[in-house]
Amino acid sequence: MAVAPPEAETGTGVPSARRSLRRRLGGGVVLLVLTVLFLLPWWTLFASGVDWPFPVVLTGTLVFAAGLVSFPFLMAAGHGQRRSDRAARVADSALGVVWVLFTWSALGGLLHLVLMGLGVGGVGPARIIAVAVAVVSAGLLAWGHHEAMRVPRVKRLDLVVPRLGGGLDGTRVVVLADTHYGPIDRADWSARVAEAVNALDADVVVHAGDIADGTPAQRREQSAPLGTIRSRLAKVYVTGNHEYFGEAQGWLDRMAELGWEPLHNRHVVVERGGDLLVLAGVDDVTAESSGLAGHRANLHGALAGADPDQPVLLVAHQPKYVGQAADAGIDLQISGHTHGGQIWPFNFLVRIDQPVVHGLSRHGERTQLYTSRGAGFWGPPFRVFAPSEITLLTLRSA
């Protein structure tokens, strides 16, 4: 009688094989995407009938090949267990450059096809398109880097909250989101952002998550200026998804150390002019899958003990949490996460996952959602057609 091998008896062999297959397929998809990202700009700039001298083509080919080969290793070194900030800076910048080149190469390629269809082909048009793609991309990258590194502009908005008591009319809520302190040292930028927030004379300051890429110890100097931010009534903070790539509980503790109220599925109540406002917050929607004990988005827990007749301002990192907020009759949800797309046309991909990319929207009978474009940037140090913001919401009663 044949004896089944141990993995057949326990059933562990099949799941292991499936996991291995998924990893291989995932790796293959990533490699395919990277190849396309690098190949299309190379083709547009050096091989689409431009007929550049051989040394130019060779140099361009070597640059793109070196970028494609080294990119996965740089990303692994920068964002894996080693957390090398130097490698992350190079990889993130390369990702931004190749994304912009890919986008405008695709547009240039479409134009080239149209011209060929009209009978306008040859070396001349191909070279004009290649040069235009290079110049436009370089210009957008320079401008986008400036936009990413500058202190965000202040966006002001009056927002009517029908259940808001008259004593709270005119309450000034300043929103920060997605500061993303990371591999590029932006301690000076952080200090200037804190000064800009303090100049707005806030009653409430909200940090809507994604405070950093890295641990509190790594980003201690960059996060320190948050301790200088002032408000009359409260400073509140919730975790974003990026905290769960590092040390989410450590960031909650760090923000408490800096004088903020971490709304870890809880609420606080503030009073102005004899009227009350509930400030509630939930963990990011990715918290539960992180495996960190006690972390998950729990709106019921956040509102436990709150007076249901009082207006509620909910802070939830991702806009897509607004479905639960609307079901619970929340008056106003404040979110970030999207960066407004950060680098056009990525905003169209963000829209697939999120109900809103930026700005004010209404959901259900009562709930309003404000989605901030965020103050910082993730990964590539560029913002193209998606400016950063610090938001001043002035709450108005009906």
Rank of each mutant, 00 (worst) to 15 (best):
residue 88 A to I: 05
residue 354 Q to A: 09
residue 330 I to Q: 05
residue 48 S to P: 04
residue 225 P to T: 10
residue 78 G to I: 07
residue 182 G to H: 10
residue 145 H to D: 04
residue 72 P to D: 11
residue 275 D to E: 04
residue 201 D to V: 15
residue 233 L to I: 14
residue 360 L to F: 07
residue 26 G to A: 05
residue 67 G to M: 08
residue 339 H to D: 04
residue 108 G to S: 01
residue 394 T to K: 07
residue 234 A to G: 08
residue 235 K to N: 14
residue 167 G to F: 04
residue 204 V to P: 12
residue 279 L to D: 01
residue 81 Q to Y: 13
residue 321 Y to K: 00
residue 168 L to V: 02
residue 344 W to N: 07
residue 293 A to I: 14
residue 330 I to V: 09
residue 9 E to N: 03
residue 372 S to R: 00
residue 175 V to S: 04
residue 296 R to Q: 15
residue 303 L to F: 03
residue 269 V to S: 07
residue 322 V to R: 03
residue 169 D to W: 09
residue 383 R to H: 07
residue 173 V to Q: 06
residue 114 V to P: 03
residue 43 W to T: 12
residue 203 D to A: 12
residue 3 V to C: 12
residue 117 G to E: 10
residue 330 I to Y: 03
residue 280 A to R: 01
residue 53 P to K: 13
residue 12 T to N: 09
residue 356 V to R: 09
residue 393 L to E: 10
residue 39 L to H: 11
residue 314 L to M: 05
residue 13 G to Q: 00
residue 398 A to W: 04
residue 310 Q to K: 15
residue 125 P to R: 04
residue 201 D to K: 15
residue 12 T to V: 12
residue 18 R to K: 10
residue 240 G to I: 07
residue 40 L to K: 01
residue 19 R to F: 13
residue 130 A to Q: 05
residue 269 V to E: 07
residue 283 D to H: 09
residue 45 L to Q: 11
residue 389 E to K: 00
residue 380 P to V: 14
residue 29 V to S: 01
residue 111 L to T: 15
residue 234 A to I: 03
residue 349 L to F: 15
residue 150 R to H: 08
residue 263 L to Q: 05
residue 315 V to I: 15
residue 331 D to V: 14
residue 130 A to E: 02
residue 118 L to N: 02
residue 125 P to N: 02
residue 92 D to I: 02
residue 103 T to Q: 01
residue 50 V to T: 15
residue 331 D to H: 08
residue 106 A to S: 11
residue 67 G to D: 11
residue 166 G to R: 02
residue 234 A to L: 10
residue 346 F to P: 00
residue 277 L to I: 14
residue 124 G to F: 11
residue 347 N to G: 11
residue 151 V to R: 09
residue 282 V to K: 02
residue 335 S to K: 01
residue 189 W to P: 13
residue 379 G to A: 05
residue 220 R to G: 03
residue 381 P to R: 09
residue 74 L to K: 05
residue 73 F to N: 06
residue 162 P to M: 03
residue 333 Q to P: 06
residue 266 R to C: 12
residue 353 D to P: 03
residue 85 D to Q: 07
residue 156 R to N: 14
residue 116 M to A: 12
residue 187 A to M: 11
residue 18 R to P: 03
residue 165 G to V: 04
residue 108 G to M: 03
residue 18 R to Q: 13
residue 261 E to G: 02
residue 214 G to F: 13
residue 45 L to M: 06
residue 234 A to P: 09
residue 328 A to D: 04
residue 344 W to A: 14
residue 370 Y to L: 04
residue 20 S to L: 15
residue 303 L to T: 02
residue 296 R to L: 15
